[in-house]
Amino acid sequence: MARTRLPVNGRTLAQLAAATTKTSAASVVRRVPFPYRPPTVPAGVEPKRPEPKTGGNYDTEWARSYPARLARVLLVEGLVRPAVELLAAPTIKGVDRLLDTDGPLIFAANHHSHVDTPLLLSTLPEPWRHRIIIGAAADYFFGSRLTAPVSALVIGAIPIERSRVSRKSSDDAAALIDEGWSFLIFPEGGRSPDGWGQPFRGGAAYLSLRCNVPVVPIHVEGTSRIMRKGSKVPKPAPTTITFGTPMWPTDDEDSRKFAARIEAAVGQLADETATDWWTARRRAHRNETPSLQGPGSVGAWRRTWSLGDRSPKRRRAKRAWPDLG
C-alpha cells in the first residue's frame, strides 16, 4: 500500500504528537517558547504591578450615566421600595426639617445592618433620593469584579477606602458633590458588631467642610432586628428613620470636632426616637443624651444587657386627649 509523504512541519507535529504520548501535557506547556508564554523576571528587578480594577479603584462613572440612573430609579422604586415596605415597614420622621434646604446634602446615618442602605435609598425624601451616591466600603462592596458593578448600579455606590485615608476616594466624592450629587455615608465605617454604635469617623465632616455642604444626621432604628451583622436571613421588623436638622460646620471646627457633633446629633435623634422630641431636647441641653456607643468600660454582658433598654417598643399613646367626660 502506498504512503503519502507528509510535509515537513507536518512531520514535526507528528513527532510532537508521538512525543506527547510519552510525556504529560504540562511538559508540553513548559516547552512553549517565550512569546507564547509570560516572561520570567530577572533577579533583583521589581516589576510594576498593574492597578487593580476593583476595590477603591473601581471606576463607577458609567453608573451615573442616564441609562444607568434610569435603571436604578426603576430598581429602587419597583423592587427595593416594595421589598423594604414589607420587610422594614419604615416610619419616617423629621422630613420637614429638610424643607428649607436645597442643593446637595451629605446624609450621615448610624449603621446596624445591610438593610440600612436599601431602607435609606427608598426613604430619602425627594429630590435627593434619585441623585444620591453611597459611600460603600471599597474592600467589601467593590472587592470583586462581580460585586463591584452590582454595587455601583443597584445602590449607586462609590468605593470608599475605610482602612486608610485615600485621596482618590475623597477627591471623587468631593467632585461628585460639587456636581450636585448628594452623598449618603455611614460614618461609623461599618455595621455595628454588637448593637452599639462605633465612633464616627471624619469622612462626612471632611466632605462637608471641603464642599461647603450641610450634613443631615439620620438615625435609623430597628434594622438590627431585621438583620444584624452576622445573621444571614432577614426577619421583618418595623423601623423608624429620623432625619435631623441640616448642620453646618462652625468656623472653629475641624472635621474631627464636627464629626463628634454629628455623632451627638444622631445620638439626640436616637433619643428622640426612643422617647420624644421634648425629652430629647431637654436631655441634650443637660448633656444627658444617652451615647450611641453604649456604656463604656463595663463588662461585655452589661453592654449587651443595657441594649435591651434601648430597643423601644412601639410607643402608642392610649389616649391622645384628656378625658372630658
Binding site: K93, G94, D96, E272, D276, W277, W278, T279, R315, A317, R319, A320, W321, P322, L324
Partner: peptide, 22 residues
C-alpha cells in the same frame, strides 16, 4: 405644630384644645 411636638406633648395631655365650657 409638626409631629415632633404632637408626639412629645399630646400623649401626656400637655397639648390640647382650649375648652371654653370647662
Amino acid at each position: 405644630l409638626g409631629d415632633r411636638i404632637y408626639d412629645a406633648f399630646a400623649p401626656h395631655g400637655a397639648l390640647y384644645n382650649h375648652d371654653a365650657e370647662d
